[in-house]
């Protein structure tokens, strides 16, 4: 069976490295090929890494509240770069202030993300979703 390739990193001027390391561990352990870009990753880096690695999904983390600005236009850039239909996942502290997660999810889905996760999500849930989305065991 084809190995699923994930490009992941913490977007924008965000230096939160712990969650990134945990996700890297969990996804690798679950059998995915992980291209981890670490912290302070720009949209351009996500897109270019996805092109070179022929990635199946881009996993964007953000903890510092500015994620909404950072993530805007990522789907368009993917489309422009020929990555049409690539799955986009986002998770973390994604917006400023106390906003219901349903609303956050809606905003991110409008921006072209396929799945959105609130702060403190169990990474295993994302693993289940990824396997479901790509039909792998």
């Amino acid at each position: 069976m084809k190995q699923i390739t994930l490009v992941m990193g913490v977007i924008g001027a965000d230096v939160h490295a712990v969650g990134n390391k945990i996700l890297n561990f969990v996804f690798t352990d679950a059998g995915f090929k992980v291209v981890n870009l670490g912290v302070m990753v720009t949209q351009k880096e996500f897109v270019e890494a996805a092109i070179e690695s022929a990635a199946d999904a881009i996993i964007v983390s953000s903890l510092y509240g500015q994620g909404e600005i950072d993530c805007k236009g990522l789907r368009d850039k993917c489309d422009e770069a020929g990555l049409k239909g690539i799955k986009l996942y986002a998770g973390g502290n994604l917006v400023i202030g106390k906003v219901d997660f349903e609303e956050v999810e809606e905003r991110y889905k409008k921006m072209g993300f396929d799945r959105v996760y609130p702060p403190g999500s169990d990474p295993q849930i994302s693993v289940v979703h990824l396997k479901e989305d790509f039909g792998v065991e």
Binding site: T5, K33, I51, S53, A54
Partner: peptide, 9 residues
Amino acid sequence: SGGIDGGNK
């Protein structure tokens, strides 16, 4: 060149 190993062919 082009593509990392296992990446874009």
